[in-house]
C-alpha cells in the first residue's frame, strides 16, 4: 500500500496529525473526553459558587456596617474626587514619575558599579571593595524615611556654598542612595549564581577577567535578576511618595493638601488608584518575565 492511499481520504474524524495511518478515537477515548468535560464544568461551578459566597459575604459585612455611610461619603466621594484629580495627576507626573525616571537610571548605573566592585578580585580595588561593602551595609540597613530626612534636612544645614537646598533634588538623592544599595545586592547575587564553570570556560579561551565579566558573566547574571529588579522598580515608584515629607508636592502631598482643606479623604483614594494604574501592569509584566526565566532555566536543566 502506498503512503497516499493510507493517508488521505479526508474523513471528518481524521486526526490533526498523521503518522501515515488513519486514526479515529476509540469509544473508550470518546467517553473519557466527555467525562473530562463534565469534570471541568463541575470545577468551574464550584469555583464560581465559592467566589460569590465569600466575596458576597465580605461585601455585605462592609456595606451593612454602622459606619459605612459616613465612610463612603468621606473616602469615596467620586464627584469631589473628579474635581481634584488634575491636581493629584500634576503632582504624580511632575514629581513621582520624573523622580522615578531619574532615580531608576542613576540607580542602575550606581548599583551595577557597586556590584562589580564588590565581586571583583583585583587587589588594586581592595579599598573600594571595603567602601562598597560598608556603603551597602549601611544604606540597606537604615529605613529610607530616615535617609530622606537626614539628606533633606542635613545637607542644607551644612550651609555649604553651591550645595542645593532644593528639596526635590535632595529627595532624589536620598532615593538614589538607598535604592543603589538594594540593587547592588540584587545584581551581585545574580553574578554569584553564574556557575564557576562558565568563568573557567571563558578564561580557558583566553578571555581576560574583564572580558569574561563583560561577555559571559554579566549577560547571564542580568537576565536572571531581571524579575527581582522589576520588583525593585515597582517598590521605587511607590517609595518616591516618601519624599513628600520634605515638602515636595507629589501625588501624596497634593492629596494631603486637599484632604486637610476639606476633611474629605477621597484624594488619598484617588492617589492610591493612580499608583495602582502604573504598578499593577508592571507587576503583571514582572510575573511574566519571572515565569519565562524559570521556563528557560528548566529547559537548560533538561539539555
Amino acid at each position: 500500500m502506498s503512503e497516499d492511499v493510507r493517508r488521505g481520504d479526508g474523513s471528518p474524524n481524521s486526526a490533526p496529525y498523521s503518522f501515515g495511518g488513519e486514526w479515529t478515537p476509540s469509544d473508550f477515548e470518546i467517553q473519557r473526553r466527555a467525562d473530562r468535560k463534565k469534570k471541568v464544568r463541575k470545577n468551574a461551578f464550584i469555583a464560581a459558587f465559592s467566589s460569590i459566597f465569600v466575596l458576597g459575604t465580605l461585601m455585605t459585612i462592609i456595606v451593612t456596617s454602622p459606619g459605612w455611610k459616613v465612610l463612603s461619603a468621606t473616602f469615596f466621594d467620586w464627584s469631589y474626587g473628579f474635581t481634584i484629580l488634575p491636581k493629584i495627576l500634576v503632582g504624580f507626573f511632575e514629581s513621582n514619575v520624573i523622580l522615578t525616571l531619574i532615580a531608576s537610571a542613576s540607580v542602575a548605573v550606581i548599583g551595577l558599579t557597586l556590584a562589580l566592585i564588590r565581586t571583583s578580585r583585583s587587589p588594586a580595588l581592595t579599598p573600594f571593595r571595603i567602601l562598597a561593602t560598608i556603603y551597602v551595609d549601611m544604606f540597606r540597613g537604615i529605613p529610607m524615611l530616615l535617609i530622606i530626612l537626614l539628606v533633606g534636612f542635613g545637607i542644607p544645614a551644612l550651609q555649604l556654598k553651591g550645595v542645593t537646598n532644593n528639596v526635590f533634588i535632595l529627595g532624589i538623592i536620598a532615593v538614589i542612595i538607598t535604592y543603589s544599595a538594594y540593587v547592588a545586592e540584587v545584581i551581585r547575587s545574580g553574578i554569584l549564581t553564574v556557575h564557576p564553570s562558565q568563568r573557567a570556560a571563558a578564561r580557558s579561551l583566553g578571555l581576560s577577567n574583564f572580558q569574561t565579566l563583560r561577555y559571559v558573566v554579566l549577560p547571564q547574571a542580568l537576565r536572571r535578576v531581571t524579575p527581582p529588579l522589576l520588583n525593585d522598580l515597582v517598590a521605587l515608584i511607590k517609595d518616591t511618595g516618601l519624599v513628600s515629607i520634605l515638602g515636595v508636592t507629589d501625588a501624596i502631598r497634593a492629596a494631603q493638601i486637599e484632604a486637610s482643606r476639606t476633611f474629605n479623604y477621597t484624594p488619598y483614594v484617588i492617589a492610591a488608584c493612580i499608583f495602582l494604574l502604573v504598578t499593577i501592569p508592571l507587576t503583571r509584566y514582572t510575573d511574566r518575565t519571572l515565569r519565562r526565566s524559570i521556563e528557560r532555566q528548566n529547559a537548560q536543566g533538561q539539555a
Binding site: 573557567a200 549577560p219 537548560q300
Partner: peptide, 11 residues
C-alpha cells in the same frame, strides 16, 4: 580546553 560539562555559553 574542553570540559566534561561542555560549558557552552547559554546566552
Amino acid at each position: 580546553m574542553v570540559f566534561q560539562s561542555f560549558n557552552l555559553f547559554p546566552h
